[in-house]
Simulated assay, not measured.
Amino acid sequence: MKKILITTFLVLAAASAHAADTCKSKAVDKNGKPLAGAALTSFMKKCTNDATASCDLSAKDKNGKALAGAAKTAYTKKCVSDAVGG
């Protein structure tokens, strides 16, 4: 169990390096103005769903084996949080 948690934290540390491109930073209209109201809500919901799907697929340990249980949950939660920007 310790090995899985250590691996998870190492993967999370690597994933946090990509945090600059977040849903919150992408929430702008075609004119560069920040989204608001229903448009922002819709955009954030879609972006969060996309991030969750992507994070679930990338939840693997250093040997390429899929994570499971608490390690997968922790990885996915951190990955989605980083992707959304919250």
Rank of each mutant, 00 (worst) to 15 (best):
D82G: 00
T8D: 09
G32C: 04
K62N: 14
K65A: 15
K30S: 12
A15Y: 03
A36G: 09
T52V: 12
A39G: 01
C47L: 06
K30V: 08
M44F: 01
A53E: 12
C79P: 12
S42T: 14
S16M: 10
K77L: 11
S81G: 10
L40Y: 07
K26M: 06
K30C: 05
D50W: 03
V28C: 00
I6Y: 05
S81C: 05
I4R: 13
S16I: 03
L57I: 11
I4N: 11
D21K: 08
T41Y: 04
T41I: 11
M44K: 04
A70P: 04
A20L: 09
L12R: 08
G69E: 12
H18G: 06
D50V: 11
A71H: 08
N63S: 13
S16Q: 11
K46R: 13
D21H: 04
V80M: 09
A20W: 01
T7A: 10
A38I: 08
V80T: 13
G37N: 13
K46G: 03
A39P: 00
F43P: 04
S42W: 00
M44W: 01
I4T: 10
D56V: 12
T8A: 07
N31A: 05
K72L: 10
T7P: 00
G37I: 01
I4P: 00
A51F: 03
K30H: 08
K72N: 09
A27K: 02
D56A: 13
G32I: 01
L57T: 15
K33W: 00
N63V: 03
D50I: 08
A68Q: 11
A36F: 05
K77S: 12
A36Y: 08
T52C: 07
N63W: 01
G37H: 04
A66P: 06
C55F: 09
K24V: 06
T73R: 07
A36Q: 15
T52L: 15
T73N: 08
D82R: 02
S16C: 09
K24F: 01
N31P: 01
K26E: 05
A19M: 12
D56H: 14
H18N: 10
K78N: 09
C47E: 03
A27C: 04
T41A: 15
V80K: 08
N63C: 04
K33Y: 00
G69P: 12
N63E: 12
A38C: 06
V11N: 06
T41E: 15
L5D: 06
K77P: 03
